[in-house]
Design a protein around this nucleic acid. Sequence first.
DNA 1: CAGGATCCTTTTTGATACTG
DNA 2: CAGTATCAAAAAGGATCCTG
Lengths: 120, 120
Amino acid sequence: MPSFDVLQAACPSRSVLRHLTDRWTPMVVAVLSDGPARFGQIRGRVEGVTAKVLTETLRSMERDGLVTRTAQATMPPRVDYELTPLGRTLVTPLAAVRSWAEQHAEQVLEARARYDDTVD
Amino acid sequence: MPSFDVLQAACPSRSVLRHLTDRWTPMVVAVLSDGPARFGQIRGRVEGVTAKVLTETLRSMERDGLVTRTAQATMPPRVDYELTPLGRTLVTPLAAVRSWAEQHAEQVLEARARYDDTVD
DNA sequence: CAGGATCCTTTTTGATACTG
DNA sequence: CAGTATCAAAAAGGATCCTG
């Protein structure tokens, strides 16, 4: 079995890492970790995403095998998204990073203020 | 104490998360987790970064209080970077994501192939 | 060696209007 | 409702040349 290494330029794991760290991916995973959700529900919880970008994010996640998309051709339409088993293995790692951001935001903000203060 | 939530548009933790998921940040953290390193060493291990972008990444990390920068005004100059205590708390979470990317790259690649195959 | 300064290309993200 | 299509803006990233 090949060993993947993100430090290597040509390693495919880089494109995987890239997607995981897309702007909205960690948030979408956070929302879907609570269970399946409809497009509009996701959009409502992830403040600030536009429909277009959310669609792109979900499409990319679907392509990578992280979520499933179930559409019902009713009127109005209803589309449900759900994490796949693979996607679920991502919940913990991404939650850790997201949680780090929330729990250390204060310290980072202070560090920035200090840095910007030292006008050197 | 305020509660930070990345799902909220105006929450400062979003900009923190944004930086953590910058293209090169997880890789730089991975390299520095082995101990302090010089600019050139980091650049050598993180394949593909240009000096300009690596400088920007390190500067941003320094501003956020994640690394320290120690310059020696010798000729040629020597600059060492090292994770701060705060930066060190980031090693595990980021390593988990990076590790996920490496360990599931194969599955993701397969999922992509399947998706692209289904030309629907 | 470690960068700063410029210029430029690519990638992402967003605003808006429209549709099955 | 859940998108798509277009257009525009911004941001990130990169190539190249220069310097203490």
